[in-house]
């Protein structure tokens, strides 16, 4: 396997008087959740391989406030936002990449009104850009011919209209992209959004992630591709619930690329 991860912090860049190309906003899930940390590492491996000059905030990063805002706590959201914006502006950040659509949406759309103006991209958009610029090459080997279905994260797709970047990457892996009956604009939520991730669902017939997993399994996929750490958790739980974890893998697109590149 590849050598140790190189994860420079903004503080280090600042100390050396240099500026990275992009700030990697890791997010809470990417920092603390065991499953999501694998996505973070996979993405960093790709960044290292492509020699992208990036930095993380590390211990200076804090929750964007997204779950608080969706739960109705505007006050807590704005406290988080204003604090984060102070840090980001102090480092004169221009461009941010993140593997979490919730962080992506909040920083991109809700921070400008509070004084935080940055170019924000989702990691699938960033990877697509690296590919177009020839800074990474993708060999489809490992995934050649595999059936892959992509689950649109609500906050990437419907909320921000990003549908193609993740799909282009999957196609680049020589995989067979199969669509679920609800996809793109009509994509069905995994059940985690709107702060649902952090609470028990209300009484009903079924959990949302089970419904979505059933839709995904209908496509007879080898892999369910995701672009959001929360969707990833929900779909992984769904696949386990259906006892399909031996046949179907839930992977982030960054992980697929890192695997294909044998990183």
């Amino acid at each position: 396997m590849a050598s140790e991860l190189k994860v420079p912090t903004m503080a280090e860049f600042f100390a050396s008087g240099t500026v990275p190309e992009v700030l990697f906003w890791v997010g809470c899930a990417g920092s603390f959740d065991d499953r999501a940390k694998k996505i973070t590492k996979a993405f960093v491996k790709i960044l290292n391989k492509a020699n992208v000059s990036f930095a993380v905030l590390g211990t200076e990063e804090s929750c964007t406030g997204d779950p608080a805002k969706r739960a109705g706590n505007e006050f807590l959201f704005q406290m988080q936002a204003v604090t984060n914006i102070e840090v980001l502006n102090a480092y004169e950040i221009k461009k941010i990449v993140t593997a979490c659509p919730h962080c992506f949406n909040t920083i991109k759309n809700e921070y400008p009104g509070l004084g935080g103006n940055y170019e924000v991209v989702h990691h699938t958009q960033f990877l697509k850009q690296l590919l177009t610029e020839g800074r990474i090459s993708m060999e489809g080997g490992t995934f050649k011919g595999k059936r892959i279905t992509f689950h649109d994260p609500c906050y990437l797709g419907r909320a921000n209209g990003v549908y193609e970047a993740p799909r282009d990457l999957i196609r680049k892996l020589d995989a067979e992209l199969v669509e679920m009956k609800n996809c793109k604009q009509k994509g069905l939520c995994c059940g985690a959004g709107g702060a649902q991730m952090f609470k028990e669902p209300e009484k009903g017939d079924k959990d949302v992630n089970i419904e979505r997993t059933e839709q995904a399994l209908e496509t007879k996929p080898d892999i369910i591709a995701a672009g959001c750490p929360f969707c990833n958790t929900m779909m992984t739980d769904g696949v386990k619930n259906k006892e399909k974890e031996d046949a179907v893998e839930v992977m982030d697109i960054a992980e697929m690329i890192a695997t294909a590149e044998d990183l």
Binding site: L5, V7, T9, V26, C28, G30, S31, F32, D33, K37, T40, K41, V44, V56, G58, T59, E61, S62, C63, P67, Q80, M197, F198
Partner: peptide
């Protein structure tokens, strides 16, 4: 600073694991 009870000082631990 996170929706789970983890210490903010541990945010970068993943890079060493």
């Amino acid at each position: 600073g996170a929706p789970w009870p983890f210490n903010q000082m541990d945010r970068l631990n993943w890079s060493k694991e």
